[in-house]
Computed example of a mutant assay.
Amino acid sequence: MRRSSICYIILLTIAVSIAVIALPVYAQTSGSPTVGGGPANPNANVTTAYKLLQQEANRTGVIQTTIAPLSINTDLPTYNQGDTVIMTGHIRDPINATAVTIKVISPLKNLVFIGQLTPGADGSFTKTFAATGQYWKDAGNYTIIAQYGVYLNSTARFHYNGGDGSTTVTKAINGTYGLQSGNQIYNIPYIIKGGTVSSMSIYAQQYTLEIALNTNADGSITVTLPRNIIDAKVPPPPNPDANLTGAKVNPAGLEDATFIVTDGGKQITQFSETKNQNARTLSIPFSKGDSKIDIVGTIIIPEFGPIAALVFAIAIISIIAVSAKTGLRFMPKY
């Protein structure tokens, strides 16, 4: 075999490796379309519900009907005196320089908090305020009202256990954890109260983001998950012609599914979420002494996937084997 042929094989192997590394790692489920070759499909030009779904998904990136025009949530359903309330929200169609107005109404219809904030370019926003002071005495259900422009408003409710008007505050910690893969760092923003974050790790084969905690009190963590790192999607509708047509499913166009969240192996169902086209923000409660929260989705970042690493390793081994057998040199010999 001539050296030019060997070089061609090596370059082809590297190209295939890079192509596979670029593919998203997606949790396959029964009934999901697969990629394959075969004879021409006689129904290729027939309009189906599946094709219409894919056309809409490709046009919008994320199906817009799954995202509310304006939504807000709190990190916990109940607060004590001195607690910090973490409110997250999202505006589907943000307008430049338009602020969101936030009001908090007590069970006696008194205004206990008012403020404004400017959402980010993607429409997301976060607001924290302390349930403390002279206006925070009455126990009962409090209402948050978010107003955007003239027509959009949204509400969220939480229970406050009442207080004596003192100004004690349990502070929340804003932080960012850098998940590293090779030379790339992926930043995960979070807000935590009642503890600190020790580490975050991705387990690609389980499609899981694990958060290790040090907790000294009951609290919560509000974590923003970029969709290009981890996401949860409903499986696409069955497509019997997928094997014939080689149809590929764009996960970004599928309907959002609910993440599975566990605390020390026990599933948590009482967590809140806000989302936009780029990220999903979860507010997860925990108890004093808890040390690990797992967030399980269906899609994981490619760089952390085992397939990419395996293919790349095979490519390197192939190059070494061919070089050893043929005496091929990559650098000119002088």
Rank of each mutant, 00 (worst) to 15 (best):
S5I: 07
S5C: 04
I6Y: 00
I9R: 10
I10W: 00
I10D: 01
L12V: 09
L12E: 03
T13H: 00
I14E: 02
L23I: 04
P24M: 04
Y26K: 12
A27W: 05
Q28V: 14
G31A: 08
G31D: 13
S32I: 01
V35D: 13
V35P: 03
G36D: 12
G36E: 11
G38A: 06
G38I: 05
A40K: 04
N43E: 11
N43H: 04
N45K: 01
V46L: 04
V46F: 01
Y50H: 07
Y50D: 04
K51V: 15
K51F: 14
L53N: 09
Q54W: 09
Q55E: 11
E56D: 13
A57L: 08
T60N: 14
G61C: 09
I63C: 09
Q64W: 10
Q64E: 15
A68E: 09
P69K: 11
P69V: 14
L70K: 12
N73G: 03
D75L: 03
P77W: 04
T78V: 15
T78D: 08
N80A: 12
N80V: 05
N80W: 01
Q81T: 13
Q81S: 15
Q81N: 13
Q81G: 15
G82K: 00
G82M: 01
D83L: 01
T84L: 00
V85M: 10
T88Y: 02
G89W: 08
I91F: 03
I91C: 01
R92L: 14
N96V: 13
N96M: 12
A97C: 04
A99R: 08
A99P: 02
V100Y: 05
V100A: 06
I102D: 00
V104L: 06
S106D: 04
P107D: 02
K109R: 08
K109F: 07
I114Y: 11
G115H: 10
L117D: 15
P119M: 14
P119K: 12
A121D: 07
T126C: 11
T126Q: 13
T126L: 13
A130P: 15
Y135E: 15
W136E: 04
W136A: 10
W136D: 08
K137M: 09
D138Y: 06
A139F: 02
A139Y: 02
G140T: 03
N141H: 10
Y142C: 08
